[in-house]
Computed example of a mutant assay.
Amino acid sequence: MARVRVHNFTITLDGIAAGPRQRLDAPFGDGMDKVHDWMEVAQADQAAGKSGLGADRIDGYAEGVGATIMGRNMFSPQHGAWEDESWTGWWGDNPPYHHDTFVLTHHLRPSIPMEGGTTFHFTDEPIEAVLERALKAAGGGDVVIAGGAHTVQQYLRAGLIDELNLVVAPILAGAGERLFDGVDDALGAFQVTEMVSDPSATFVRLERQ
Rank of each mutant, 00 (worst) to 15 (best):
R3M: 14
V6P: 03
V6L: 06
V6W: 07
F9K: 00
I16D: 00
D25Q: 03
F28W: 14
G29N: 05
G31F: 08
D33W: 00
A42G: 14
D45W: 06
A48D: 10
G49T: 11
G52Y: 05
G52K: 07
R57W: 12
G60P: 07
G60D: 15
A62N: 12
V65C: 11
V65Y: 07
G66D: 03
M70P: 09
M70L: 15
Q78Y: 07
W87K: 10
G89I: 04
G92P: 02
P95C: 06
Y97C: 02
H98T: 07
L104I: 13
R109W: 00
P110W: 04
I112W: 00
T119V: 15
D124G: 15
V130I: 14
L131M: 06
L135D: 01
G139K: 15
G139Q: 14
G140P: 11
G140D: 12
G141H: 14
D142V: 13
V144H: 11
V152P: 00
Y155P: 00
G159I: 13
D162Y: 10
E163C: 12
P170T: 09
P170S: 08
L172S: 09
F180A: 01
F180K: 02
D181R: 10
G182L: 14
G182Y: 11
A186Q: 03
Q191G: 08
S197T: 14
P199F: 03
S200A: 15
